[in-house]
Design a protein around this nucleic acid. Structure first.
Lengths: 154, 154
DNA sequence: TGCAATTCAGTTGTACACAACTGAATTGCA
DNA sequence: TGCAATTCAGTTGTGTACAACTGAATTGCA
C-alpha cells in the first residue's frame, strides 16, 4: 500500500514501489529473518521453528491448534514444521487422550534446555536493529494495530 | 527481537512472543499479503509477482539482476517467478545482445495494460490499514531504517 | 594477449505459507 | 438418542525464499 495521502493522488505515483508501506514491511520482515539466520543456525532452527519454540517455552504442552492461533499459522504449515522439530528431538507429538482429534506438543528435555541458548538472541537482534527502545516499542504497537485492521478488512 | 529495554532485563521476559518486534513484522507482512490476495486475484497475480510488475511499470525493460536489486530477491526466486509471468503473457524474457549473460524482461501490451487495473489497489489497502497517513509515512520510514540496519549487521 | 576472477541467470534441494481437501473425532440439536 | 455440522490434524499442490551450485559470458590484470 502507499500512504493515504499518496494513494489519493490516484496517479501513477501510487504504484511506485518506494512509496509502498507493504513493500517496506515485506523487506523488513525478510531482513529480520536474514539477521536471525546466523544466530538461529547455532540452535539448528529456522525462524518459524524458533517462533514455535518461543510459544512452547512459554507454556507446554500445547495443541497444534493453540500453536496455530498464537502464530497465525494453519496446520498446513505447522504439521510438517512440528514433525521437523520432533525429528530434531526438541518436541514430542502425542494424541490427546481426552480428545483424539488433538495432538499435543510436548517439549523434550533438549527442547526445554534450548531456551537457555536462545536467551541472548533478542538482545543481539535489538542491537542490530539500530533503533531506540522507544522506536521499537512504537513500531511494535503500530504493526499490531495494522495487523488487526488488515485481518478485519476481509 | 524485543525492544532494547526488555531484552536488557535478560530474563525469560525477553523470549515472550508478544514482546518481539520481529514477530510483529512477520505477522503484519503476512496480514498485508493476505489483504492483497483477493484484490490481486482479480489481476491473476501473487503479491511477489505484483511487486515485480510494479518495478516493470516504472521502467522496462529491466534485467533480472536489476529487478533483483529493486526487490531484494535473488535469481533463485526471480527466475521461476518471471517464467510464470511470461506464461501469463505479461512479460517477455529476451537474452541481451550486448551482454549475453543478461536476460531483459520486457512488458507485453497485456502486461503494460494491467497497470490500469492495479491503480486502485494502493488506496484500497491504505483504507484497510486503519492508520493515518502520518502513521503510514512514519511506519515506512522506520521500517526503511530498520531494514538498512539489519542488512548492515551481518 | 591470455587466463583467472567475476558476473549473470538458471537449477536443485529444503523449508515455509496457504488454499483446498480428507478422514477421524466430537458436538449439538432436532 | 441419532446424525448432521463442526473441529481437528494432516495431505496435496502451487508459489515463494534462499543457500549452494552450474555453466556460459565478460572483465580485468599480469
Amino acid at each position: 500500500m502507499t500512504t493515504s495521502e499518496e494513494a489519493r493522488t490516484g496517479g501513477p505515483e501510487a504504484l511506485r514501489l518506494n512509496r509502498q508501506v507493504c513493500f517496506a514491511m515485506y523487506s523488513a520482515s525478510r531482513a529480520a529473518t536474514a539477521a536471525y539466520r546466523p544466530m538461529l543456525e547455532e540452535l539448528g532452527l529456522t525462524y518459524p521453528q524458533y517462533l514455535a519454540m518461543l510459544v512452547l517455552w512459554e507454556a507446554a504442552p500445547r495443541s497444534v491448534r493453540e500453536l496455530g492461533e498464537e502464530l497465525g499459522l494453519d496446520s498446513g504449515t505447522l504439521s510438517p514444521l512440528l514433525k521437523r522439530l520432533e525429528a530434531l528431538g526438541l518436541v514430542q507429538r502425542r494424541r490427546s487422550a481426552e480428545d483424539e482429534r488433538r495432538v499435543e506438543i510436548f517439549l523434550t528435555d533438549a527442547g526445554a534446555a534450548l531456551s537457555a541458548k536462545a536467551s541472548g538472541i533478542p538482545q543481539r537482534l535489538a542491537d542490530a536493529a539500530g533503533l531506540t527502545a522507544a522506536e521499537l516499542d512504537q513500531l511494535r504497537d503500530t504493526l499490531g494495530r495494522l495487523t488487526n485492521a488488515l485481518h478485519a478488512s476481509h
